[in-house]
Design a protein around this nucleic acid. Structure first.
Lengths: 224, 224
DNA sequence: CGCCCCTTTGAAGCATATCAAACCGCGTGG
DNA sequence: CCACGCGGTTTGATATGCTTCAAAGGGGCG
């Protein structure tokens, strides 16, 4: 968990989404494919992605994995009500996070309670809930092409509709997010490319241009 | 929405799960297959199931449906942070609910703020989130037999492990909860019966006895 | 240059969906 | 009381979308 190679610089400022500013945040770097925290571990910190990308996932004992969310720069993750993490969080690529102690942030056992308004925490949890609820419909009732299209639109939005979308995750991560295999994800992307809805930039298949967002939207929701 | 045939008796008491007692609850009856509220409707009330059962679901425009949760007697549902319902809620069978105004309960715009501790609300939302997160893994990564087994165990637990489990929902509801078809649900139940893990009581296929909960647990998680 | 990881693509297999038919209990109306 | 229709369920046959297995190509890095 603690990597001596990591810097640990103190900061006093607030990520967007949290209102109070007088909380101590420490910087921490995680190499790709290392865990930020593990499922069932006590939840001592809250994390703020500065740079990189993180996946939160659950695993079955035979290795099947479901990724519940991707966390990109600006996102906050790891807050838990229960005191224990319900997910494993792993760095997808080399990632820098800022960490704050839960009790500092949410003032449970400290004198300065409500260091961050409970309202903020509520907002964060509600956003997670909403995302999970939408994802239930996708996992339970949408086909592979719709799933991949929806994924692209989600990433597009969260990366603020860049000209070129650079995906930090590989095909397997996408597959485990969408409840598919990596081959099916690849085939769906190929189909979308063939329909000229997207294109790859250069030879790396992680840089994607969305040529036709409206059409992509139609594919994502052949419905709704 | 408002059915004149319904009784509307005022109550002053608190469902378990909410701490304060001085909130006005009104009783309301919903016939089976009628909606309690619709997606995108303003969320004015919070609901407490007294009797019956409710499903909350999302639909795609072509009719595909994903049920996110079943609400049984004692459950609270319909609280929304956003002010608008993100689901449709429908009575599965004839159902009695108690309703309380959101602002009475959570004291947003009233003089008596925090009529119910924000902590309670947080607990409710966290429970929903946890359930949704677990359901993601089920929908994305478990096979039909595992899904049905997990469903039975969930219902068993929530009905407090009765000798005979009486399911309020039909096979299609179960299917739409598990991301399957009703035929696949039926086949899975038949397989479990053949393995003597469960049995039907009488000729109605909604009364189920779990003969071997440990074995059912093994089926549910051929993993985890 | 060569190895490894990632991705794509093809072929075959399989789990679940789809289509179809029969059964059963139940409520209704003759 | 019985005949009938209907919704719900089961079961069988077939179809299909996705997975599994396999192979090849490409890029990056030692």
């Amino acid at each position: 968990m603690i990597d001596p190679a990591n810097s640990n610089t103190p900061h006093r400022s607030a990520p967007s989404g949290l209102s109070k500013t007088d909380v101590l945040w420490s910087e921490f770097k995680h190499q790709r494919d290392t865990s930020v925290f593990e499922e069932a571990e006590p939840a001592e910190y809250v994390y703020h992605v500065r740079d990189g990308a993180v996946r939160t996932c659950k695993r079955l004992s035979d290795g099947r994995r479901q990724i519940s969310a991707f966390h990109l720069p600006g996102d906050i993750f790891g807050f838990e009500n229960s005191g224990f993490h319900r997910f494993t969080a792993e760095a997808i690529i080399d990632t820098t996070v800022w960490m704050a102690r839960r009790q500092d942030l949410f003032g449970e056992h400290t004198g300065l309670n409500d260091a961050v308004a409970p309202k903020d925490m509520m907002k964060l949890i509600t956003r997670s809930l909403q995302h999970a609820e939408d994802h239930l419909l996708l996992l339970g009732r949408q086909n592979s092409l719709e799933k991949v299209a929806a994924f692209l639109l989600e990433m597009d939005l969260r990366l603020q509709k860049p000209d070129v979308m650079v995906l930090p995750m590989n095909r397997r991560d996408i597959a485990d997010y969408l409840g598919l295999t990596l081959e099916t994800v690849s085939r769906s992307l190929s189909m979308l490319r063939q329909q000229e809805i997207l294109d790859f930039v250069g030879q790396t298949q992680r840089k994607i241009v969305l040529c036709d967002r409206p059409k992509l939207g139609l594919v994502a929701r052949s419905a709704d």
